[in-house]
């Protein structure tokens, strides 16, 4: 579904991404792990259009998207969440979900001005879909609260609900469980598995290896902007190259 071919991103002299080749097959959950500063978020920013690669190609179902603006990419079916929560915090939970559906809407401001049937039907449709998402993520009670006032775990879930509101085929989750306790992490894992059951595809950045085990079909390891390893979660866990990247070299083999 998503293919990255030789994606390179330079920031001045710094190579944030170096010839990254990565494939996310349809209806699979792919994990992306790596130490801090490895370029994971840069990768997601490049896929979602907030940043563009210096060279290389990103293809969604065969169509090149590496130079498309973010709203086009969203409308083409890629949604994302953020490592640091970026909700519209002054708005209500419901409004956040309505904005998430922006790309699906057709009604213009003029429709709203004179209450055309299209406007009314669409607003009803948007509210219904928002209500479904609220229920799915256990947020119905909070629909009219200010998003910024929600407890942390609820904000994380709302962000995921808002990503789903864009009606995506592929969801990019940037550390969805950061700051969550083990029980919340487990529950969020179930939500991710549910995405797969609904026919969606996901690329998950994560540090929590138990979550990777719980949800991922395959895993890519990124270090210093390069793909270090690729395999099933079990293979990755045993891979000596990955262990070295995370824990450093064994003293006996260490070159001084």
């Amino acid at each position: 579904m998503l293919e990255l071919e030789k994606v390179t991103r330079l920031f001045g002299g710094l190579t944030a991404l170096n010839n990254v080749n990565l494939i996310v097959p349809a209806n699979k959950i792919v994990g992306l792990i790596g130490p801090n500063g490895a370029g994971k978020t840069t990768l997601i920013n490049n896929i979602s259009g907030l940043d563009h690669p210096t060279s290389g190609q990103i293809r969604l179902n065969g169509a090149e998207i590496q130079n498309a603006p973010p709203h086009r990419i969203t409308r083409a079916g890629i949604a994302r969440t953020y490592q640091n929560i970026r909700l519209f915090s002054d708005m209500t939970v419901l409004e956040n979900l309505l904005i998430g559906q922006h790309g699906r809407g057709q009604a213009t401001f003029l429709d709203s001005l004179v209450f055309t049937p299209r406007f009314r039907a669409e607003e009803r449709d948007l509210h219904e879909r928002a209500a479904q998402l609220l229920e799915r993520f256990n947020l119905t009670h909070a629909a009219n609260l200010r998003a910024g006032n929600l407890p942390y775990g609820d904000q994380r879930r709302l962000e995921m609900a808002r990503a789903l509101a864009t009606n995506p085929k592929l969801v990019l989750l940037d550390e969805p469980t950061a700051g969550m306790n083990p029980i919340e992490t487990q529950q969020l894992g179930e939500q991710i598995i549910r995405l797969q059951e609904d026919g969606l595809t996901a690329l998950v950045i994560e540090h929590d290896m138990s979550l990777i085990h719980q949800v991922c079909d395959e895993v890519y390891v990124l270090n210093f902007g390069q793909i270090l390893a690729h395999g099933t979660p079990d293979e990755i866990k045993r891979d000596p190259v990955v262990i070295e990247a995370y824990l450093g070299k064994d003293e006996d083999h260490g070159a001084a």
């Binding site: 973010p70 709203h71 519209f88 904005i99 998430g100 922006h102 009604a107 709203s112 864009t166």
Partner: peptide
């Protein structure tokens, strides 16, 4: 009043709060 109740008006408020996140919601910010 009608602007605030419309899809376009919600997009305006979203852009004020976080332009990049608004773009990722499918809003054509430009």
């Amino acid at each position: 009043i009608r602007l605030h109740r419309s899809r376009f008006g919600r997009a305006m408020a979203a852009i004020r709060q976080d332009e990049q996140a608004a773009a990722n919601m499918g809003i054509n910010v430009v």
